[in-house]
Design a protein around this nucleic acid. Structure first.
Length: 489
RNA sequence: GGCCCGAUCAUCUAGGGGUUAGGAUGUGGGAUUCUCAGUCCCAUCACCGGGGUUCGAAUCCCCGUCGGGCUGCCA
């Protein structure tokens, strides 16, 4: 039986950040590949930054990506899952506070009566003198009498950082050694009894029996503090793995404000969750199968290997994402593609209710090879749902303003009218025969027809779209185009 | 400032004492006698710099440079 327990502990700040998604994914993957447990814990102790909608928005991001959790807080209709809750940090204050005070009782932490103002002044002085600020430790060895004399004076609780050195045995970074002198006696509890991040994470990870802490490498220098706390609290030490963060396409930290920082931005732009998972996993991990780049979540569950994580940060490259999305779109069945694309058309005000499911499936199918994102489908099919009232100008010059333009359309109309079978194959055969006997270029016939039928220079294959459009509508549009051509040439 | 981490084509990466430094995306060109896209082929492009160690360094070590992080009564 596996004892692997991983967690993602995001602070719900409004949406699921791409970087958080990466960390969640790797934790999830590790837990799943080891038959372990994946825990979602909300670090919502910063009250001003937490709103219920924020929590919902973030969980929606996880759901979209397909990252589920075995233990976690209530979400939507789901009750809290797991026996080691509560899974919202804001509901664990008592625990944090008690553990902090336990350290005081055990002499591993102490009450500090220095005020924030005093500390700020010290800090300013240190700055002015260009020396590193360090807490004076003046409260470190107060006698019981001195403490008693303080009466009701508010105090913070500080950790008594032990002498010596702390080694983080990191699964990704290797052993990283720190001299404990580098660390101040950091604060554990605020004057109101609330815990500081370092205490809260360690208490939560300890009590939730987390076996592997996989997180961003911005926490690498926090790890020794956490290790000291694990030891002081008497919790078994988890394994650590610090992963590089995701950079934007300019190589900078992916700012919260930037478009694309929210994973749901990608959904809204027509990317598949499969794509995002596949793309993010490639940002810092490679499979043993060299050169392989295409993965589904299900495959990843079996292939994931924590030894193949990368140490350096990677940029988020939109171009490669586009390519990958196209790959994933092509992997879909036409039915699935249809279902994914229908809401997008609806959102654009396109009413598809008059069409059969079979027809809509065909519509999706003829675009499948061509669109890099789901949203691109709109331009590929909108002409099916509205009249063509204008023609693309450049295409018009090329196909409607030539001396032979009318002749092309006349030939098209003649063949279409004569078509006994209104199918892609029959139409294609007729056009090819025409080319053979008259020597006219197929492109001229086809592109003039496409322009007549869609008003656009680009789109699905002409024979495919004509078949779907139906003979009657197609011929109406062809005749209208012919009139138009005669009027301008 | 102090401490810590990182560095292979433009981008994601493989490799890791002796290789023609491999793949993918992008870009350029060609093919596919319907556009666009796709697909297929070809081409283009890299070991951050300097010192060591070694017969031999992209690979190991040191220094530097650059990038990132921590250094909060934020998480």
């Amino acid at each position: 039986m596996s004892t692997v327990r991983c967690r993602i502990a995001p602070s719900p700040s409004g949406f699921l950040h791409i970087g958080t998604a990466k960390m969640a994914l790797f934790n999830w993957l590790f837990a799943r590949s080891q038959g372990g447990t994946f825990v979602l814990r909300l670090e919502d102790t910063d009250a001003e930054r937490t709103e219920e909608e924020f929590v919902d928005a973030m969980c929606e991001g996880f759901k979209w990506l397909g990252i589920d959790w075995d233990e976690g807080p209530p979400f939507g209709d789901e009750p809290e899952k797991g026996a080691l809750g509560p899974y919202r940090q804001s509901q664990r204050r008592e625990l944090h506070h008690n553990e902090g005070m336990r350290l005081v009782a055990e002499g591993k932490a102490y009450r500090c009566f220095c005020t924030k103002e005093e500390l700020d002044a010290d800090r300013a002085l240190a700055d002015a003198e260009k020396r590193p600020f360090r807490y004076s430790r003046k409260c470190r060895d107060l006698t019981p009498e001195e403490i008693a004399a303080k009466g009701d004076t508010p105090f913070v609780v500080r950790f008594r950082v032990p002498e010596g050195e702390t080694v983080v045995d990191d699964l990704v970074q290797g052993p990283v050694k720190f001299n404990n002198k580098e660390f101040d006696d950091f604060i554990l509890l605020k004057p109101n009894g609330d815990p500081i991040f370092h205490l809260a994470v360690v208490v939560d990870d300890g009590l939730m029996q987390i076996s592997h802490v996989i997180r961003g490498d911005d926490h690498l220098t926090n790890a020794p503090r956490h290790i000291m706390l694990f030891n002081a609290l008497g919790y078994p030490l988890p394994q650590f793995a610090h992963l590089p963060m995701v950079l934007d396409d300019a190589g900078k930290k992916f700012s919260k404000r930037m478009h694309g920082a929210n994973v749901l931005d990608w959904r809204d732009e027509g990317y598949l969750p499969e794509t995002l998972i596949n793309y993010v996993v490639m940002l810092g991990w490679t499979s043993e199968e060299e050169g392989r780049e295409f993965f589904t979540l299900e495959e990843l569950k079996h292939l994931f290997n924590i030894n193949r994580l990368n140490k350096s940060a990677a940029r988020f490259d939109r171009k490669k994402l586009d390519w990958l999305n196209g790959q994933h779109i092509r992997m879909l069945t036409p039915e699935t593609l249809r279902d994914r694309v229908l809401p997008i058309l609806a959102a654009k005000g396109i009413d598809t209710s008059g069409k059969s499911v079979e027809w809509l499936t065909q519509m999706a199918a003829i675009c499948q090879e061509k669109i890099p994102t789901l949203n691109n489908i709109v331009d590929y099919v909108d002409f099916f749902f509205r009249d063509v009232d204008a023609y693309d100008m450049k295409a018009e010059n090329k196909y409607f303003r030539q001396p032979e333009s009318a002749a092309w359309l006349e030939a098209d109309i003649r063949m279409m009218t004569a078509a006994e079978d209104w199918t892609h194959d029959a139409l294609k055969a007729a056009f090819e025969k025409e080319v053979e006997v008259t020597g006219v270029k197929l492109g001229s016939l086809v592109n003039a027809a496409r322009l007549a039928l869609t008003g656009k220079p680009v789109g699905p294959g002409m024979f495919e779209l004509a078949e779907l459009m139906g003979k009657e509508t197609a011929l109406q549009r062809m005749n209208r185009a012919l009139e138009h051509v005669r009027s301008i040439t």
